[in-house]
Every structure is written in structure tokens, then in C-alpha cells.
Design a protein around this nucleic acid. Structure first.
Lengths: 227, 227
DNA sequence: ATTTGTGAACGGCTTCACAGCT
DNA sequence: AGCTGTGAAGCCGTTCACAAAT
């Protein structure tokens, strides 16, 4: 009890954000029968530099062997543990439109660590419908789904107009982590962790870089019109 | 011609990544009839601090009025211009499964700045099918779609197993920006801009924070098993 | 001989606090 | 009086380069 088996707490955010990428690369190596890997190889496969990879891993502990590399299975386990994936987290998806259905049947959940426990929708017309082995439930089923003191992740896949309302309901039910796919910014109280995935944001960032590459387009010369 | 109308080049990456958020907040204000906004209000609505917002905007130019705030319409225009959204960028979506269809009909493209010009799929069974007002085309239509010297954004919405192959085809056709929704890391040559959106990565990052909040779970005590 | 783990230097982003402008 | 724009300071993350380990 007094022995701290885990490495130093406080893994930098930037490192946490890259760990899933390492995990995926290790998974591919496992399925290829690779038993050991160097930081150089793993880094290339994950799309980062080897120095960055080694620095990242150093925050979890010392799991490599100098002169040799990393044991694929052991490193996979250690990263999983650091991320908290040694057991499944329950996930609730709200909004069963095109996007919600795509998410529900997405391979992403097949990855060890998550289990979709409920699909919710406001529309009585789709409630009751079956997707895979889950029935779509109405919104008021939410309170019974989230047990106090037990973690739960909510995924918002509704139209933008309903996103804030759904977020409020999730928070009220006790969900403390939210992944928002709706095309709008939502406000959550302090203490609730929120991440956003947004197509148009990503496209706009790409557009910026395309613009820099290809130079300004003709239309851009009507600058000053709004003066 | 010798007059540089645009502000200093080189907007920091971190700033570029936030500009879409400001744009969205400004759009909401426009639709609410708000004409002027302070950095404090806009920052809150976008979920950042006012100092960060002002610093970000300072990289585009000086578009506010001291003692007053920002003109919503003008700031909206200036950010759009900085991001290169004064004209529409053509987008090609590859992979017409659940996810591809969701993306094709997603509101994200409705945002000024993008136009889906083609839907592609490898499967002959879905080729020819109509979605909205576009017919799904076979993969070999790609070369005719991308004009040399003209920018084009490719979206990969295929299963993980096909993602690298599709990326190679897109690059070969001349696409220089790729948004990857497939659950795998893909390699692209230097000079091609690639961004990744991945459900399981986002969930795993949330899981890490949930774990920190709720503490270690019982299973975590079998540490050392892999020694 | 080879590859990890890490202090140290570096660079970029955020925060602070206030000068500058309306 | 009020709010923006921005140097300066501080913080965080990345890169470098090498000591440590096998």
C-alpha cells in the first residue's frame, strides 16, 4: 500500500495525446508477430521522432532495454495501464442520426478499453430500433444508466442545435467526460472533461495551409471592402 | 502590387487551430444580430481566455477598436480571409460506408469554404448510387478530378486496411491536403499536409483523465505480471 | 556496439500587466 | 473610463547530445 508501483504522476498532456498512437503502432506489430522494437522503428511507425518517443515513454517509467529496444507486449501493457485501459470504460452515444450510427458501428470501440453501453435519441420514431445488439432508448433513460461514483463517457452526435442541451443532461446525470462531435462549441462546468471533434475545424486548418502553398486566390483582392 | 495588404505572414500553428472556433462563435453572434463584441465576450463564447484571443487576433492585424471591441462582420471577414475561406475549396470524399455517408451529409460542409465535388468508393455495388446530388464514382475517376496546380482536399473515410492505399492514390493524383478518419496512421510524402481525426484516440485521452479523477481500478494491481 | 534514458539548450506558446488609443 | 494591442516574463514542449546500461 505504501509502495508506489506506478511511475511519477503527471504525464504531460502532449505525451498523453500521443500515447494512443504508440498503442496503435504496437498493436500492428503484435499482429505481425514482432516481439521487440527500437525507438527508431516505433517512432517512424507512429509518425514522430525517436527522441520524442523516448522522452514520452520516460514519463511512464523505464520499460526499455539499452542496446536492445522495447518488448512489444510489455510496452503495450504499460501504455495501456498508463492510459487507464486495463478495464473497459462505459460509453453512451447520444444522437442516432447518420453520424451516431457510424460511430456506434465504428471499429474504434473494438479497440480494447471501451464498451458502448447505451444508444440514446430524442426522436420517438427511432427509439426502440435495434443497432447491433443494443436498442435505442429515449433520453430519460439517462439517469438510470449512469451510476454515481462510476466513470462514464458521453458522446454527443446530435445536430448542433441540441448539443448544449444534451451536454447539460449528461452532466446532470453524472457523466464527467464528454466527446462532442456536434458542430458547435458547448460549455461544461469546471471539472467535466470535454473534447471536441469537428470536421469543419479540421478542413479550415487544412485550407489555411493549402492557401499558403498555392498563394492567394484572385478573389482576395477585394480586401478593404469592409472598411 | 508592391503594397502588402495582408498582415505579417507566419501565423502560429496554435493560433490557426483556434481561428475556426472564433469564426463559429462570430457566426452565432451574427445570426443573433449582435454587431459588436468585446474580446472578453468572444473569448468566453469560444472557450479561451481573452488574453489568448487578443494575442491570436494580433497576428492577423489590428481589427479591433480600443475602448469598444470588434465589429462582428468585419472580424468574421478578416478571419475567413486569413484562413483562405474567401472562396470554396473542393473536397473529395473516399469511402462511402457509414462514416463517409455521414460526412457527405454533414453540416460541416455547409459552412462557407468547402464544396464536396466527388464521392468515391472501391465497391462496384455502391458506385453509381446517388447521395444528395452527387453520384458515387469508382476510384479511377480520381485522376480526372484533380486539376494540376489547383488545390484539393481529400477525405479518407475507408476502413483502416485501405487507408494507406487510398492515401497513395490521392497523393499520386495531386491532392496535397488529406484528412484521415480511418483508424490507422498513414504515411504521406513530405509536402503533403495530413491531419487525423480518430475516435479511439479521443476516447483514450478522455479515459486517461477519467482514471486520474476516479483513481486506479482494482485490476491495476496485477502490475508486474509481464516482468 | 548499440540503443535507451535524460540533463541541458532551445524555441514556441501562454500569461501578465500596462501602454496606447478611442 | 474602457478595451485593445503588445512587450516582457514565465511555462511547457521539443530537440540535442551524451552518459549509462547491456
Amino acid at each position: 500500500m505504501s509502495v508506489d508501483q506506478t511511475a511519477k504522476r503527471d504525464i504531460p498532456d502532449a505525451t498523453v495525446a500521443r500515447l494512443p498512437g504508440y498503442l496503435r503502432a504496437l498493436g500492428q506489430m503484435t499482429s505481425q508477430g514482432v516481439l521487440s522494437v527500437s525507438s527508431e522503428e516505433l517512432a517512424h511507425s507512429a509518425g514522430v521522432t525517436s527522441a520524442k518517443l523516448r522522452k514520452d515513454l520516460s514519463h511512464l517509467g523505464s520499460y526499455g532495454v539499452r542496446g536492445v529496444g522495447y518488448d512489444v507486449a510489455h510496452l503495450n501493457y504499460q501504455i495501456s495501464r498508463a492510459l487507464g485501459l486495463t478495464h473497459d470504460w462505459p460509453v453512451i452515444i447520444v444522437g442516432m442520426g447518420n453520424l451516431g450510427r457510424a460511430l456506434a458501428s465504428y471499429g474504434g470501440f473494438a479497440t480494447k478499453g471501451f464498451k458502448v453501453v447505451a444508444l440514446l435519441d430524442r426522436d420517438p420514431l427511432v427509439v426502440g430500433e435495434r443497432l447491433d445488439d443494443l436498442a435505442i432508448q429515449p433520453m430519460d433513460a439517462l439517469d438510470a444508466l449512469v451510476r454515481p461514483g462510476e466513470a462514464c463517457i458521453g458522446v454527443i452526435a446530435t445536430p448542433a442545435g441540441s448539443a448544449q442541451e444534451v451536454a447539460d443532461l449528461l452532466v446532470a446525470a453524472g457523466v464527467s467526460s464528454i466527446l462532442n462531435f456536434a458542430a458547435t462549441a458547448i460549455q461544461v462546468p469546471e471539472g467535466v472533461h470535454m473534447r471536441k471533434v469537428d470536421l469543419s475545424t479540421e478542413l479550415q486548418i487544412l485550407a489555411f495551409h493549402e492557401q499558403q502553398r498555392f498563394g492567394a486566390s484572385p478573389e482576395d483582392f477585394l480586401e478593404g471592402a469592409a472598411r
